[in-house]
């Protein structure tokens, strides 16, 4: 109990004094997860929108696939990306293994299905009357699609935030493809795993507290967005 209290006190001291090592790790985590989220959103939001708005052969299969991939085990993704990027792998010539780029790639694979699938769900949840109303007011098919996407905006934003939550908390995939190299590929979650193994709880706890705060902020944002989106029903 004492060592835990001591650990917490040291952790807060690290946070309070803005420890350089701690800051570097937080910054890299945000950079890697931020980049992965931006790329996932650029691909996932339009993909989710198209799947939600258009009917085409194989649509049901794609939705099932996306829903399945939402629960992909991170270590499996890590293994897959590792095999792709390893020297003997098909993309080995790019020399990306054990770099932040490899970590971004792994996190994209984890976040993309979440963003696309939740975005699709947000769009299909829009009352069909919205599309009909826009048509009766003279909208082209494209303008109708924009009207539906606008109605789904809170759900779409939630999908992006959920994707961010997934990648920020992830450890298995980035540990495999990033290698947890100090000052280069070491991020919050991998540091927590490593420092816990070493019995060095101060840094691990400090990062744990920060991760929890980030997670809290994400959830508060999600809650506020959902509350705003559900502020009324369609009339």
């Amino acid at each position: 109990m004492n060592s835990m209290t001591e650990g917490f006190l040291k952790a807060f001291s690290l946070i309070y004094n803005l420890d350089q090592e701690l800051l570097g790790i937080i910054l890299l985590s945000l950079k890697v997860s931020g980049a992965a989220l931006i790329i996932s959103s650029i691909i996932g939001v339009p993909a989710g929108a198209v799947i939600g708005l258009k009917k085409f052969p194989g649509r049901g299969f794609i939705i099932t696939l996306l829903n399945t991939f939402m629960g992909l085990p991170p270590v499996v993704v890590g293994l897959f990306v590792y095999l792709l990027l390893s020297r003997s792998g098909p993309l080995g010539f790019m020399g990306l293994l054990y770099t932040p780029s490899a970590m971004v790639a792994a996190q994209i694979i984890l976040a993309l299905p979440i963003v696309a699938s939740l975005c699709h769900s947000a769009i299909v949840a829009v009352d069909p009357i919205i599309g009909q109303a826009s048509i009766t007011l003279g909208a082209t098919p494209y303008q109708k699609a924009v009207a539906i996407i606008k109605e789904a905006r809170y759900g779409i934003l939630s999908s992006v935030i959920a994707g961010f939550g997934r990648v920020m908390a992830e450890v298995g995939a980035i540990l495999i493809v990033g290698g947890n190299i100090a000052g280069y590929t070491r991020v919050m979650t991998t540091t927590i795993a490593l420092e816990t193994d070493k019995g060095n709880f101060e840094l691990a706890l400090a990062l744990g507290v920060i991760l929890l705060i980030i997670s809290l902020i994400i959830n508060i944002a999600l809650h506020l967005i959902q509350r705003k989106g559900m502020a009324g029903t369609i009339r």
Binding site: I129, G138, A231, I234
Partner: peptide, 29 residues
């Protein structure tokens, strides 16, 4: 098509202000 319009029984309110709802038809034109 833009010379006619239909008001549905459930009108399909856009989740925005009254002003923007009314402005919609003009904006898309």
């Amino acid at each position: 098509r833009r010379r006619i319009t239909l008001l549905l029984p459930k009108i399909g309110v856009f989740n925005t202000s009254v002003f923007k709802n009314v402005a919609y038809g003009l904006k898309i034109r």
